[in-house]
């Protein structure tokens, strides 16, 4: 090589240009390799945990009273179940909701994108665990809650603060967890 000796700054750059690609690629392989097989479907959780329950004012079924913000300031922790008659996992979790009710838990329901007749038929078939049911016909309240699917279940404490969000259907093994969260919220 007939080149003039390189200044230190240049040689640093030269080395970067020569070894940089290999290094970057090694980092890439290690990183990607460590992530293979991981669940990439992002679960979008509500960012309102720890925040007050947003204002809710939903009509009820038939002549029954609907769901309003007042229902969350009773001094006692409650569950809010976001569900729909057209949602199959919601049928799967019905027995668990019934069990929670039997254990003395207040469960309120928000029926999303649903016709009143369908909700009534759903509750008739699968049992009605709800103290109050609000009809969220256009899904706007669901968005207000930061919920992105059905079914989802929120734990709200007696002061109306959202304490916990359960995504997906409640299975028998989730009952203890929900009860613990409710107890925690009641403290």
């Amino acid at each position: 090589m007939t080149e003039t000796p390189e200044t230190p700054a240049r040689s640093w750059l030269t080395r970067l240009a020569i070894y940089g690609p290999l290094l970057l690629f090694a980092v890439f392989v290690v990183f990607v390799g460590s992530q293979l097989g991981r669940e990439t479907r992002v679960t979008v959780t509500s960012k309102l945990i720890g925040q007050p329950m947003p204002a809710v004012n939903l009509p009820g079924l038939g002549g029954a009273p609907g769901l309003t913000s007042a229902d969350f300031k009773t001094g006692k922790p409650v569950l809010v179940n976001v569900f729909a008659s057209w949602c199959i996992p919601c049928r799967v979790e019905a027995p668990q909701l019934a069990r929670l009710t039997a254990m003395g838990v207040t469960v309120n329901g928000i029926a999303v994108r649903d016709a009143p007749d369908d909700v009534a038929a759903f509750l008739k078939t699968n049992g009605n665990p709800f103290t109050r049911v609000g009809l969220d016909k256009t899904g706007q309240t669901q968005i207000t809650l930061g919920s992105s699917g059905v079914p989802e279940t929120f734990v709200i404490d007696g002061r109306g603060i959202i304490r916990y969000q359960h995504i997906g259907e409640i299975r028998p093994e989730h009952i203890a967890l929900l009860m613990a969260k409710l107890t925690e919220a009641g403290r």
């Binding site: 008659s85 949602c87 649903d114 016909k137 706007q140």
Partner: peptide
């Protein structure tokens, strides 16, 4: 996933 079509027309 696992959901049928909602019965209500959209907003």
């Amino acid at each position: 996933p696992l959901a049928a079509d909602p019965t209500m027309p959209p907003a």
